[in-house]
C-alpha cells in the first residue's frame, strides 16, 4: 500500500532555489552551456565566412593575425562564461540532494559544450584563413 502514501512534499520534491523564474527558462537552464556553444560557433563561423567574403584572404599578415586573435579571445570568453555558469549552479545545488539530477545535467552539458568550444581553437590556430 506504500504507493498510496502521497503527501505534498513528495509531489513537489524538485523545488529549485530560483523557482520564481519562468518555467521555460528553468527548463532550458541545464542546457545553458550549449546555448553559449551555439552562439560561439555561429560567431566564429559567420565571422570567418564574412571576413573572407570581404577580402581577408588578400589582406596583409597583420590583419589576419588580428582577426585570429579576436577569434581566440571570443573562444576564451565563451569558455569562461560556460565554466562560470556551471560553477555558479554547482554552488547553488551542491547542498540540495533533490537537485543532484539537475546539477549533474547542467555540469555535464557545460562540460561537453566546453569541449566543443575549446576544440574550435584547433581550426583557428592550425588552418590557413580563407584558403
Amino acid at each position: 500500500m506504500s504507493s498510496l502514501e502521497l503527501d505534498d512534499g513528495e509531489l513537489d520534491d524538485e523545488v529549485e532555489p530560483h523557482s520564481r523564474t519562468g518555467t521555460l527558462r528553468r527548463l532550458l537552464d541545464p542546457a545553458f552551456g550549449h546555448f553559449v556553444w551555439a552562439v560561439h560557433f555561429l560567431a566564429v563561423y559567420v565571422g570567418a565566412a564574412v571576413a573572407c567574403v570581404l577580402g581577408l584572404g588578400a589582406a596583409g599578415e597583420g590583419t589576419r593575425t588580428t582577426f585570429l586573435a579576436v577569434l581566440v579571445a571570443l573562444t576564451v570568453v565563451a569558455t569562461a562564461v560556460v565554466v562560470g555558469h556551471a560553477v555558479w549552479r554547482h554552488r547553488q545545488y551542491r547542498d540540495l540532494p533533490d537537485q543532484r539530477f539537475r546539477m549533474v545535467l547542467t555540469i555535464g552539458n557545460s562540460g561537453i559544450a566546453t569541449v566543443g568550444i575549446v576544440w574550435q581553437l584547433f581550426p583557428i590556430l592550425l588552418v590557413p584563413v580563407c584558403a
Binding site: A48, A49, C52, G57, Q120, P123, V127, C130, A131
Partner: peptide
Amino acid sequence: LPVLSLAFFSAA
C-alpha cells in the same frame, strides 16, 4: 568553401 570554415564543422 574556405578550409577554415569547413574545419570549424570538423571540430564540432
